[in-house]
Amino acid sequence: MPYTAEAPTRRESNEELRARIPGWGADLDPADRPAVPRERFAPEVTGAHWDFPERQEERVPRERSIEHRFLTPVFGTSAPLHGVSGAIRRFAYEKFGEGRAAHWLLLIAGDRVDAVGSHLRSVLTLRPDNPVTETGVVSELRRGGIRSRVGRGRADVKHGWIDPLLIAGFWVFTGIVAVAVVRSIGKR
């Protein structure tokens, strides 16, 4: 077909589509679509019976984005800041706005420190993490790990060999460095 002003020919008519697909065209009129228009001023429909929410008690100092004028009246209370990861995260919130890459990269660094610290704490307790049950890897046996992958042409399987290197690589590298440091100290 040459490039003309004509639109491509429809493969199925409205009648054919209506017969084949339950509800075809039920929301053809944009007026029937709840997200149209995008902004619809209607504060009366939300159920709010306040102009500004009652402020939640701030039991521990709560970090906030410097792009906010104040601590929002309501906030999550899960996992308050603590330790080294908490210090990194608080620095990220207090020093950098959300438009700065440093803000997010510091938060990611805080996540890594949090994870490492949690692993170390686990090792030092009487109930260390169980990598077999807590990673869910046993589902590889119970949920067909092999048949779900082999012969299916999955793109993720083709590069799956990299995953152990990426996941274990950090720990192996850290272990090597730790051993080297200990040996170095021992030689002195």
């Binding site: 001023f41 209607a42 959300e98």
Partner: peptide, 29 residues
């Protein structure tokens, strides 16, 4: 998570509520 009374909630943008997420203005609660 949304308050129902802020600038965004009043306009139906419940996912962009300004009163529930102190950690970021780039996303709601």
């Amino acid at each position: 998570v949304y308050c129902g009374s802020c600038y965004y909630c009043a306009r139906g943008l419940y996912s962009n509520c300004h009163n529930v997420n102190p950690n970021a203005t780039a996303v709601g609660g």
